[in-house]
Design a binder for these strands. Sequence first.
RNA 1: UGGGGCGUGGCCAAGUUGGUAAGGCAACGGACUUUGAAUCCGUGUACCGCACGUUCGAGUCGUGCCGCCCCAGCCA
Length: 567
Amino acid sequence: MSDINETHTPEAAESKDFIRLMVEDDLRTGRFDGRVHTRFPPEPNGYLHIGHAKAMAIDFGVAEDYGGQCNLRFDDTNPVKEETEYVDGIVYDVQWLGHDFGDKIFYASDYFEQMYLWAEELIQKGVAYVDDLSADEIREYRGTLTAPGKNSPHRDRSIEENLDLFRRMRAGEFPDGAKVLRAKIDMASPNMNLRDPVMYRILHSEHHRTGDAWCIYPMYDWAHGLEDSIEGITHSLCSLEYEDHRPLYDWYLDQLGIYHPQQIEFARLNLTYTVMSKRKLLQLVNEGHVHGWDDPRMPTICGMRRRGYTPEAIADFLDRIGIAKAISTVDLALLEHCVRSDLNARAARRMAVLRPLKVIIDNYPEGQEEWLEIENHPQDEAMGTRQIPFSREVYIEQEDFMEDPPRKFYRLGPGREVRLKSAYLVTCGEVEKDADGNVTAIHVTYDPETRGGEAPDGRKVRGTLHWVSAPHAIDAEVRQYDTLFTQENPEDVAEGEHFLDYVNPDSLEVLTGCKVEPALAEAEVGARFQFMRQAYFAVDPDSSAGQPVFNLTVSMRDSWAKIQKRQ
RNA sequence: UGGGGCGUGGCCAAGUUGGUAAGGCAACGGACUUUGAAUCCGUGUACCGCACGUUCGAGUCGUGCCGCCCCAGCCA
């Protein structure tokens, strides 16, 4: 590859993000004995979305870059919201994205006993107490952003009484909400998280893994650092909103005097024309704005998978957007660019006509058929070729014919000659119309000397159309998608409006009666193709034998559309 | 009017110890083309949020402003 006299200019060292810089710093100073161990800690209360994919790219990516490990850990500390269905879905998605979490899956619930013991330790130490205040009262006592809170009347109970009460909380002697265990820190702290945060609440609720073994459950702040500590995590990477929680994360670990990981925060991902909160996604599902978590319009991993996105394209996208602390909204166009780029390289080409228009080749012998060779990929010979049938009647795209075409229209029109891709050059003749004047069929004549699409006399033909032989065509359903929202930022709503007001009513368009080449009849679910001159499509699970259903993955760039728009 | 963060071209985002603004996406030209795809060339006056300082020299240091985001769940 390289010339003998080629000058090798050293590639500029790839710039590292601030997290990797911090990790390298710790590696240099031997802070964690040279270890790098991260974790990806989803709560099983919904499906993963592209934002989680970013977190994973960071968590797993950092571990991988420095020869470390990344634990997949379910942060299942709230039984009322969590379900096994979600853990299964999450595990599948993480694997599909290609992340290696070893042979073990971790669960916060596995540490409940240890957490409980540590809680007793803090009570013994005099820095945790049982509070009888109601949720409302606790809120009142907490103060506001600008006014300090005040101590709970139960703040100074004796260690013995606190221990007794806490044990009875565990034993199930009190109803939900009757008492909580709180850390005794500082009700006047300017950081609200430090105003005696709740460590445990009573929840007589069945947990998807521990059943009814517990009726008290740890709060996130109390639990998370302990989980990280138990697993020997070195760098606990999370999103920006936890920045304020870091002092508390540190406080618990310091009070206990146990192994202490470093929490580092980064900005989470926002994408134009979509929402990224699990609550909103759940709402879209529950209220029927989409057909489920895996609806191809959803930014969920399962939705993107069904739509035809590849893990590689997603990884490429995540790699390109970078990691920083500035809150940003990435242009959907970048994600689509990554998908196109990956699919362009790997998707086999096929011919499919979405909105069929019958073309009759008058001078082609009736009843004759022939099989023509066509490449599966113009730039990748290794993908080979296939045979496609040709006959007297074929379908072309309705938009590839115009009775009164503008000058730059390189397609079929009265008297014009175009090429049917890999078949023949045909010249437009008569046009059939129905009573309303709609074009119903077009008659053309073909040049038998142009088999394959090349004219022996060297004449050039500007337009090349895709087509499908009518008698051989397979009927298919094609689902075309547009953005789920009509606004770049659906969350940016005016007074009295709601993000749901911006749901795009035209985000799904189902086309039936599409005509596809026979090779597509037995395409496997999940298979991805480029329908030449149109877009990339993936076979939907709703497909049945001989009745394929295709999802639009992403359109191809369309400079003709731009030319039209300008006119 | 408390605390914690952030502010580099339309969108992301690099900018180590201050030396005179990478790259990607988008957009716009053009070449090529049996996908108007792909590919290939080319195009940006970024007052580096603003204002003062320090300095021979500041996106990088200092001070003061301004703007945006997060925090008052017994959610994570």
